[in-house]
C-alpha cells in the first residue's frame, strides 16, 4: 500500500466522521471543565469515545467508502491499518483536548492524563474495531472486551501505580487486536 493510499483512506474516513469527532472533542472539553480530580474520568470517557468512533467504522455506515475500499487493489491488513488509525486519532485528540483543558484549569492531574490515558484509549479502540465486523452477541462481547481493556489499564496504572506494566499491557493488547482485525477484514464477506 502506498503512503498516498493510506493517507487518502484516513482522510476520507475522518472527513465522513468529522461531526462525530467534533462532538467527541467537545464532550471531552466539557467533562474536563467539570471533572473531579484523578485520571478515572478521562480514561473511561475517552475509551468510551474511542469505542463509539470505532463502531462508526462498521461496514454499511458509510456504504460508498466501504465499496470503494472493497473494490480497491488493497490487502485486508492494509485496509485494517488505515481504518484502525481513525478511532485512534480521534480518541487521542479527545484525550489531548481533555488534558489541555486540565492544564488551562491548572489541574494537577493533567500530566498524568497525558501519560496514562492515550495507551489505554488506543488499545481499547483497537479492540472495539473487531466488533465492527461482527453481529449480535459476538459484537457485544468485543465491546465488553474493549471496556475490560480500559479497566485493566486503569487497574495497572492507577490502582497498582505501575505505569510500565500498563504500557506493556496496552502495547500487547493493541498489537493482538490490530492483527486480529486485519485477519478478519481479509476474510470479511461483504454480502
Amino acid at each position: 500500500m502506498t503512503a498516498r493510499a493510506f493517507a487518502g483512506m484516513l482522510q476520507a474516513r475522518l472527513y465522513v466522521s468529522r461531526r462525530l469527532v467534533a462532538y467527541s472533542c467537545g464532550c471531552a472539553v466539557l467533562v474536563a471543565l467539570a471533572a473531579p480530580a484523578g485520571v478515572t474520568a478521562p480514561l473511561f470517557l475517552c475509551s468510551l469515545l474511542g469505542i463509539v468512533i470505532a463502531l462508526d467504522q462498521t461496514p454499511g455506515r458509510h456504504r460508498h467508502l466501504d465499496r470503494c475500499e472493497q473494490s480497491a487493489p488493497l490487502f485486508g491488513r492494509e485496509l485494517a491499518r488505515a481504518k484502525a488509525l481513525v478511532p485512534c486519532i480521534a480518541a487521542t485528540l479527545a484525550t489531548l483536548l481533555f488534558a489541555a483543558t486540565q492544564f488551562a484549569r491548572n489541574a494537577p492531574d493533567a500530566p498524568a492524563t497525558l501519560l496514562v490515558v492515550p495507551p489505554a484509549v488506543i488499545a481499547c479502540a483497537l479492540t472495539a474495531l473487531s466488533a465492527t465486523t461482527r453481529r449480535g452477541a459476538t459484537r457485544a462481547l468485543y465491546v465488553l472486551l474493549a471496556f475490560a481493556t480500559s479497566a485493566g489499564a486503569y487497574a495497572l496504572a492507577v490502582i497498582a501505580h505501575n505505569y510500565p506494566a500498563e504500557l506493556a499491557f496496552c502495547v500487547i493488547v493493541a498489537f493482538l487486536a490490530l492483527r486480529q482485525y486485519g485477519e478478519t477484514l481479509a476474510r470479511f464477506d461483504p454480502i
Binding site: 487518502g8 483512506m9 482522510q11 476520507a12 472527513y15 460508498h64 470503494c68 473494490s71 480497491a72 487493489p73
Partner: peptide, 29 residues
C-alpha cells in the same frame, strides 16, 4: 481488482464541490 472496476447500484450522495475530493480519493486508492 486492478483489472475489474466495480460500479455499485446505489447513487452517490455527493455535492459538486466534493467531486474533486472524491476523484483524489479514488486516484490515491
Amino acid at each position: 481488482k486492478r483489472i475489474a472496476g466495480f460500479v455499485p447500484h446505489e447513487p452517490l450522495q455527493l455535492d459538486e464541490g466534493d467531486f474533486p475530493r472524491y476523484i483524489a480519493y479514488r486516484a490515491a486508492l
